[in-house]
Amino acid sequence: MPSDPVHARQGGTAPPSAARRPRRLLRNLTAKIAAIPMVLTAMVVFLGGTVWTVTYSFTNSKLLPRAEFVGLAQYERLWATRRWVVSIENLAIYGLCSLVFSLVIGFVLAALLDQKIRYESAFRTILLYPFALSFIVTGLVWQWILNPEFGVQSIIRAMGFEGFAFDPLYNPDIAIFGILIAGLWQGTGLIMVLMLAGLRGIDGEIWKASRVDGIPAWKTYIFIIVPMMRPVFITALVLITSGIVKLYDLVVAQTGGGPGIATEVPAKYVYDYMFGGQNLGQGFAASTMMLLAVAIVVIPWAMLEFGGKRRG
């Protein structure tokens, strides 16, 4: 019994294991065993899976993965495919608009909620609830609201504006904006909450100081508060971007990629070629392009965030 003083006082009779340095690997063994699922996930699925997919994107795998390397052939074919180019264009339009509108609307709403208003939590609950819903639900609701026969267009026509046309889900030219409306409806609540948390994190004395100095509120926001909230903006940017690249469920539910190929997106291209078109090589090449797009945003951010200061 270790806590028994009599035993302890005898001294010198310690088991040899205590005197010799134990093997490094065996120290805190239980903790290491408990971390095995994490290690496997990180190494096998995340790292291994990514490397595997990137490697096989250089092969001519069709129905099954085959290690027959064909260089950049898959990528050449990918960029020669009209559907892929449209997907990329769509993603660029959707991404840019969604980024700008999310940040602006999210910040403005957060600033409005930060005015010590009444019913703040009611407003916040309303603005955030779409975020709790599945993209499938969001897509289907907006499919219904934007239905040209029964939805917004028909109602405004019924009000006397006979020539009014707003049928984004039937008109290939503006179809992607139909998706954007739904996407913004679901996603801005999250950005608003992040911004609100950022605004609340700003020292209240900044506001006192700017009031004493007689700076108008809007100027304080633009020249003082927004620069101070840079980390929040960057986090929001990274979140929105990684969400944009993953855009899939919403399109499947709302338009199925149509009309024609007007709302196709890369993630859907990957899925269709991998599991529908039995053309794995195209799927791998397309998903590698997606990875590249994320890396362009995430890596500079990570270097900015974690590179300067070691350990947070």
Binding site: A42, V45, L47, G49, Y271, L280, S287, L291
Partner: peptide, 16 residues
């Protein structure tokens, strides 16, 4: 690695 993995599009790890 785990945290970076969160940013990798699922499509990349789907087939593996």
């Amino acid at each position: 690695i785990l945290i970076f993995g969160a940013f990798v599009p699922y499509q990349v790890m789907l087939y593996p």
